[in-house]
Structures are given as C-alpha cells and as structure tokens.
Simulated scan of single mutants.
Amino acid sequence: MAGTSSSEIHIAEFPPNLNVLVIDTDPGALEVIEKSCKENSHQVVICSESSRAVDVLLKKEIDIRLIIMELHMPMMDGYEFLQFLNKEEIDIPFVMMSEDSTWFSMTKAFHLGAIYYFLKPFNNDKRLDLWAPLLRHYYDRLNKKDDETSDGSEFASDGESDGEAEADDTLHKKDDTLIKKE
C-alpha cells in the first residue's frame, strides 16, 4: 500500500522454535550462535561441511528459517553457497559471518543475497541479535510487496558499530508470517 507509515505496521511476537542452519568449523563461533538461538527457543542445525548443509536444504525434511554461514569454508565458500541458493531458488534469509571486514567481501555477500554480515571473532559472552536481520528481511519484503522503496532509515545506525552490517536489499525471501498489517 502506498503511503503506509511504519506506525501502521504491527510486528507479531517473534515466534520461538525457528530452525536455524549454522555452517561453520569454528567451535567458539558455533557456541555463541547456539547459545543465542537457545535463549530464544530456536533449534540449531549445525553443519561443519557445506555439502552436509546442501543435503539438509535439498531434502527439505527440516523447515529452515534462517541460515548463518562462515564465508571461508572448505569445498564451498559462503559466496558459492549463496549462488547455490539462488540457482535452486531456495528463499531463506542468509547471514554471512567472517573475520573479513573488507568492503569488497561485504558488498559481494549482499549482492549475492545475504541480508546481514556478522563480524568475527565473537565474544563468548556476546549474544548475537538474530532478531535484527530477520526483522529487516521481512520489513524489506513488505515494502517491496507494497511497491515502495525503503531507504532503511528506520534502521539507521547512530554511528556506533557493533560489528554487524546489514544489506539494503534481499534476494532470499520465505514468507510474511512475522509481520501483520492491519
């Protein structure tokens, strides 16, 4: 709807028990992500190999609602994995993570469809904000559905960085169950 203001959008309570696919070989990062997911009652599917993650997605036995992947993985890196998702038309929000904080790496990830980019290493006591990338994903999708353009100002940073970057656009879309319009 043209002219819809953000005050007319009501965010449903973030549903618990989402299945999150995590692809990484770093035990420390996996521990932080698993802790963050479990605090919000989300289930974690951990794959230490990209090929195993491909199998999980192609078999469709588990309804994966978010993918978090290390950029630098053996055999299939994060960029190749995003290309696989695009080729197979798998529409799941994707978060890239890496120690590589270069403009090139982040831009390439966003161009291929990542909706967020976590910078590593994580503090073991840090809790990752998984709500932000998902909220942004569904908010952007709602705006695209309404044929409006979003400049992202509602999510603009106050100038401080918490080691996370987000995309202005997304290719991997699942559904609008997290946002209700009245």
Rank of each mutant, 00 (worst) to 15 (best):
P15D: 13
N19F: 08
M1C: 02
S36R: 00
S101T: 12
D140M: 06
W131C: 00
S7W: 05
E70S: 15
H42C: 01
I115S: 11
E154M: 04
D129P: 00
P15G: 10
D146F: 11
L57H: 02
E61V: 08
P27C: 07
R52L: 15
P15H: 11
D162Q: 03
P93A: 05
C37S: 06
H137S: 14
G3L: 03
D147S: 05
E166D: 07
I62K: 05
G78T: 10
K60Y: 11
D91P: 06
I179A: 01
S161D: 11
T102V: 12
F118K: 03
D175K: 02
E49S: 12
L57Y: 02
H42T: 00
D129Y: 01
K181N: 06
E182L: 12
Q43M: 03
R141H: 13
L57G: 03
M96Y: 11
E148L: 11
E80F: 09
D77G: 14
G152Q: 01
A2G: 07
D125W: 11
K126W: 08
K120P: 02
P133C: 00
I92K: 03
E89I: 11
K173F: 15
A114Y: 09
I92P: 01
S50C: 11
G113C: 08
V54T: 12
G159C: 02
L171K: 10
E166N: 06
F14P: 00
K181I: 08
P133S: 03
G113K: 07
L142G: 00
M97P: 05
S161R: 01
S153T: 13
L142A: 05
P93R: 06
D91Y: 07
G113I: 07
D55I: 13
D158N: 06
I179E: 01
S98L: 13
I23E: 10
D175I: 02
P121Y: 11
I68Q: 03
E154A: 02
M106A: 15
I115V: 15
M76H: 09
E13W: 07
L58D: 15
N143P: 01
K120T: 14
M1K: 03
N86D: 11
E31W: 11
I11C: 06
M106I: 15
S105F: 07
A132M: 09
K60M: 14
E31T: 14
I115N: 12
C47F: 13
P93G: 06
S50D: 11
S101Q: 13
Y79L: 14
P74H: 09
L57K: 02
P133R: 00
F84T: 11
K87P: 04
S50E: 09
E99A: 15
K181A: 01
Y139L: 00
E88L: 10
S50H: 08
H137D: 09
L85P: 04
G28C: 09
F155V: 00
D146A: 12
P74K: 10
T4V: 04
E164F: 05
T107R: 15
N19S: 14
T149V: 05
I33F: 05
K60G: 13
R141W: 13
D151A: 04
V32R: 00
I62H: 03
H72D: 15
V20E: 05
S50P: 13
A12N: 10
E164H: 04
T177M: 04
A29N: 12
L82G: 14
L82Y: 10
P15R: 12
T149M: 07
A29Y: 08
L82S: 15
I115M: 13
E166V: 07
E99L: 14
N86G: 06
S36G: 02
K144M: 10
V95S: 13
S5R: 06
